[in-house]
Design a protein around this nucleic acid. Structure first.
Lengths: 157, 157
DNA sequence: TTATTGGTTCAGTATAAACTGAACCGGAAT
DNA sequence: ATTCCGGTTCAGTTTATACTGAACCAATAA
C-alpha cells in the first residue's frame, strides 16, 4: 500500500466515523472531527486545520468542538506566545465505552420495570416475558463490575 | 393508583417507547406500536385498533408494521372465518438484546482495528490508545458467551 | 488606530425522514 | 354487480436538524 493509499483510507475512515456518530444521533461533523484526531497520524489539530481538512464552515467547527468538549472526549493544549488551540483526543478511561453500554442496559431495565409494574395481571404472557427479560438483563449488568476487575487484575500481573 | 391512572401511565410509556426507538434511528411509530403490544394489558391488536389507539394514518401503520415484521419482533395470528390479523409481540430469545450489544462492540472493534492498521507509527500515543481499547473490548466480547452459559445454567438448577 | 488572528453567534437554507391522506387493490359478502 | 373489509402504495407535506456564511468580537500585532 502506497503512502497516498494509506492516507486516502484514513480519510475514508474519518468519513465513516461521521456516519457512526450520525447513527448515534450526534452530528456527523463531530464524528469526523473525532476521526481526524484519532485516525490520522497527526495527533494535534488547530481550529483552522480542522476547518481546512474537513472543508466545513467555521460555524460548524466551532459548534461541534464545543459539543465534543462538553462530552469530555477532546481537549486542547496551548503553546506559549500563541492564541491557537491544539486539539487532541482525551485518553479517557478505557472503560467509558463499556460503561455506556452498561448504562444503556440499566435504562432499558428501568423502563421494562415500569412497564411491568403497570400490568394489571402480573402473570399474563407479556408480564412474564418482561420479568424474564428484566431478570436476565440484571444478571448481565451485575457482570460488568466483575468483568472490569477481572480485566484490571489480569493486566497488572 | 386508580385504574384510569394506570392506563394513562401505560400510554405515557408507549409514547416514551416511541422516543426510544427514535433515538435508535427507527421510526417513532414503530416504537409506539411495540409499546402498545408490550405495555398495555391487551396483548393482541388488530390493524384498525393500532390505527385507532395511536391516532395514526393507515399508511404509517402499514409501513411500520411491515418493518417490525421484517425485524422479526412482532407476528400475528388469524382467526378462522376472519380476515383480520391479530398482532402481538414475538417472545424472542431473551438474549437478542444482549447479542445486539455484543454485535455493536464487535463493529466498534473492527473499526478501531482498521484505524490502527492504517497508523504509520504503531507506537504513537493514539496508536497505543487504540491498541489498549481494542484489547479490552476483545476481552469483554469474549466474556459474553461465558456469561450467557452461566446465566442459563443458573436458571436451570 | 487599524489590521489580523482565532475564533463565536445566529439567522437562514438545505436536506432528510416521518407521516398523512387519498387512491387503489384483492377477496368476501350482499 | 357492487359494496365492504382490511389493508398497501405512493405522491406530497411537515418537521427536525445539520450546516453555511456573514456579521461580530476580543486579543494581539503592526
Amino acid at each position: 500500500m502506497t503512502e497516498e493509499d494509506r492516507v486516502r483510507k484514513q480519510k475514508a475512515l474519518v468519513e465513516a466515523m461521521g456516519r457512526i456518530y450520525e447513527k448515534e444521533g450526534l452530528q456527523p461533523i463531530s464524528g469526523r472531527i473525532m476521526g481526524l484526531l484519532t485516525i490520522m497520524d497527526k495527533e494535534f489539530f488547530t481550529f483552522d486545520e480542522i476547518v481546512e481538512e474537513l472543508q466545513i464552515s467555521k460555524g460548524s467547527a466551532s459548534n461541534a468542538i464545543k459539543m465534543l468538549e462538553l462530552r469530555n472526549v477532546i481537549e486542547y493544549i496551548t503553546v506559549a506566545g500563541e492564541r491557537k488551540r491544539y486539539f487532541h483526543i482525551k485518553k479517557i478511561d478505557k472503560f467509558t465505552l463499556i460503561d455506556e453500554h452498561k448504562q444503556k442496559l440499566k435504562l432499558t431495565n428501568e423502563f421494562l420495570q415500569s412497564a411491568l409494574e403497570l400490568k394489571s395481571d402480573k402473570n399474563s404472557g407479556n408480564a412474564l416475558f418482561l420479568k424474564d427479560m428484566i431478570d436476565m438483563i440484571d444478571f448481565f449488568i451485575g457482570k460488568f463490575q466483575e468483568f472490569k476487575e477481572e480485566y484490571k487484575s489480569g493486566r497488572e500481573e
